[in-house]
């Protein structure tokens, strides 16, 4: 494994430990430099009030040149938020995780973007093609070519 992701993630982890994560975000596990888990809540008066979700980051060896794989955990304990851009298998359709990734983004900035994506949601519903997508979805959403056609949410 290359050292570039380790060095960058070690810095991000130190930052998280000294300044603490942003409001509504909490570290569940960050034991290695391959997979980190966070809980995410949307505070304030939103459709997701009182709900808590779990986000999984998987980092490629050349992170941050390459984007992390970010999904909502779906298991016995956790579920994916009901949102027009989030599939029931936890895959997220967000341009910054796909073709608009930039190496100046970070774990925290991704969390904040997803938090505001939830906060601005006006109608709880699954993506239109949810069932079809989930049935055939690749294991990693990074293998999916999403169309980013809606800037409003």
């Amino acid at each position: 494994m290359t050292t570039i992701s380790k060095k960058r993630l070690a810095k991000e982890l130190r930052e998280l430990q000294t300044h603490g994560p942003p409001t509504g975000i909490a570290v569940v596990s960050a034991e290695d430099f391959e997979c980190w888990l966070f809980t995410i809540e949307v505070l304030g008066n939103t459709l997701y009030e009182g709900e808590k979700f779990c986000l999984r980051f998987r980092f490629p060896g050349n992170y941050p040149i390459e984007s992390p794989e970010v999904t909502f955990v779906v298991d016995e304990k956790w579920g994916a938020p009901v949102h027009p851009h989030i599939y029931s298998n936890g895959h997220i359709c967000a341009s910054i995780l796909g073709n608009e990734w930039s190496p100046v983004l970070s774990v925290v900035s991704v969390c904040l973007t997803l938090q505001s994506m939830l906060a601005s949601c006006t109608k709880k519903q699954r993506p239109q093609d949810n069932d079809r997508y989930v049935l055939h979805a690749p294991l990693s959403p990074k293998k999916t070519r999403f169309h980013y056609d809606d800037d409003t949410v």
């Binding site: 570039i4 060095k7 810095k11 991000e12 941050p64 040149i65 190496p103």
Partner: peptide, 14 residues
Amino acid sequence: CGICRVSFEGCCPT
């Protein structure tokens, strides 16, 4: 450096 987050006076990870 916004990419590696190391100071400009430091060096890149490689």
